[in-house]
């Protein structure tokens, strides 16, 4: 077996005014190397101008997501060996504006994330004297949806987020759902005002690819469909009892 592999890396430099293109690099193919190690080899040894994000190298910071052979992937936990004999095509995440090379602009995502209020919202002036107790069942209700690391692979996998830039998107809705399900939270009405608009849950047509690519098995697709059930229940409640406070 060859001890090197070709990485075809997407290059884009806004200052050139040029169009994006691919550049091929030959990197060592080692059994313990991840795709990210190949990129770091390029940056250290072959071309220091290559731009990409990474931090923890252990699948928890969520910053090294890229399209690897067309699939949204965390490059720090995907073996280069999986793609032997290559070549491997590495591109920035789909459906995001590209800042440079493999770096995408996350401003829009972060704004959407903030809008759904992904934190514990209290409507009373509850001042806990000690830790808020939660039973194992109450924890289990939302635990899976709390594992999101905001890597945005789900946005790159979701055709709807590519077709409709206003779609709030899988991760943000899954996190909204995570707080709705939290026994400490009282912010569901605020979130429904945002998430049950058309550009929220109703834009989703259950392609399901967000859940396939999620490295943390959050299953955003499930969260969105559950959110639809909740929103539907609330809609009928306010339809039947229009002046009721609910």
């Amino acid at each position: 077996m060859s001890d090197t592999i070709i990485l075809e890396v997407a290059r884009f430099n806004p200052e050139d005014g040029g169009e994006p293109s691919y550049q091929s690099f030959e990197v060592p193919l080692r059994p313990d190397w991840m795709v990210l190690d190949g990129l770091n080899h390029i940056k250290d040894q072959l071309d220091g101008s290559l731009a990409f994000r990474w931090s923890c190298r252990m699948g928890i910071c969520g910053s090294c997501g890229m399209m690897v052979n067309g699939v949204p992937t965390l490059t720090c936990e995907t073996l280069l060996m999986n793609y032997a004999p290559g070549p491997v095509r590495v591109a920035p995440l789909d459906h995001f504006p590209v800042v440079k090379d493999l770096v995408v602009d996350l401003d829009d995502f972060l704004a959407k994330l903030q809008k759904v209020r992904p934190w514990v919202v209290r409507k009373d002036d509850f001042k806990p004297a000690r830790e808020f107790m939660q039973s194992p069942a109450q924890l289990e209700a939302f635990h899976q949806f709390s594992l999101c690391i905001n890597c945005t692979l789900c946005y790159a996998a979701c055709p709807v987020s590519g077709l409709d830039p206003d779609f709030i998107g899988p991760a943000a809705i899954a996190l909204a759902h995570r707080y709705n399900l939290d026994s400490r939270d009282q912010g569901i009405e605020d979130r429904l005002d945002i998430v049950s608009q058309h550009e929220g849950i109703w834009d989703c047509t259950v392609v399901g690819e967000c859940s396939v690519v999620c490295p943390k098995h959050v299953d955003p697709s499930l969260a969105i469909q559950q959110f639809k059930l909740t929103a539907t229940k609330e809609w009928f409640k306010s339809f039947l009892l229009p002046r009721g406070k609910h």
Binding site: L192, I194, S196, T232
Partner: peptide, 13 residues
């Protein structure tokens, strides 16, 4: 998108 009108999509959904 700000806090706005909730969609009437539930009826068709």
């Amino acid at each position: 998108m700000s806090a706005g009108k909730r969609s009437n999509e539930p009826i068709v959904w």
